[in-house]
Amino acid sequence: MKIYSLKGRKLVIISKIIIIIFWIIVSRIVDNEVIFPTIKSTISSLIDIIRGPYFFNVIRYSLIRTLVGFTISLILAILIGVLASVFKVILYIMLPIVNFLSSVPTMAIIILALIWLDNEVVPLFVGFIMVFPILYESVLKGIENVDKNIIEMAELYKVDRIHVIKDIYIPNILYSLNSVFSSTLGLNLKMVIAGEALSQPNYGIGSSLQLEKTYLNTPAVFAWIIIILLISKFLEGLLNRLDNILHINRWKG
C-alpha cells in the first residue's frame, strides 16, 4: 500500500524494536504473567494455540464472517448507492438511516442485536453496521464526482448508456471505494471479533479471546492479538492484489 523511503523504513524498524524492548521491561517490572505476560510465555501460548485442535476452525469462521459480512456490505452499498443517486426518494429514505447508524453508539446497537439475533449472525451484523455507512457514502461520492465533461462528451458521441455506466460510472465508484477498502476491511475484522467476544459463537477469534480472559490466561490473549495482527496483514496483502487486478495504479497519476 504505502511505500516508505529507506529512512522511513529504518524508523519503522526502530519503532518495532522499541515496542519489544518496552514489552520486555514492563513485563520484568510487573513480574506477573496474568497482568502482563512475558514474550516467552506469549510465544509458547501462541504455539499451543496454533497446535490446538480448533485453531483452523476458529480462524476460518472469523475470516468467513469478516469476508461474507464485508461482501454483503459492499454489494448493498453499491446497489443502494446507485439507486439513491438515480432516485432521489431512496436518497432521502437512506439519509436518516445512515445518520442513525453513524451517530448511535455501536454498543447500543450491539446489545439490541444480542437480544434479537442468532449468536452466529451478531458478529456479521456488528461489522455491517460499522462498515456499510462508510461504503455507502463513498459509492455516493464516487457517482457524484463523475466528470460532467466526460458525460457530456459521451452524450455528444452518442455512446450507449450501458457503456457509459460500465466505462465511466463503475470505474469511478470502484476508485472511490478503493480509497476506503483497506481501512473498512480492517475495521470490519475488528468489529466481527468484538461481536464474537460478546455473542460467543462456537468458533471465532472473539470467542477464544473471551474464553482465555475467563481463565485469566493473559499470555493466550496476547497470542491471539498477534494472530489478529497477522490476519490484518494478510487481508491487506489480499487487497493489494485486488488493486493490481483493477489496474488502478496504472492510470493514477
Binding site: A154, Y157, D160, D167, W251
Partner: peptide, 23 residues
Amino acid sequence: FQEDRLIKWKNVKENLEFVLKGN
C-alpha cells in the same frame, strides 16, 4: 473541446474505442 476530455483510466486505444462502441 477546449480540454481534451479523455477518460483517464483508459489508454489511447480504449479512449478511441469508447466513442466507436455501438456506433
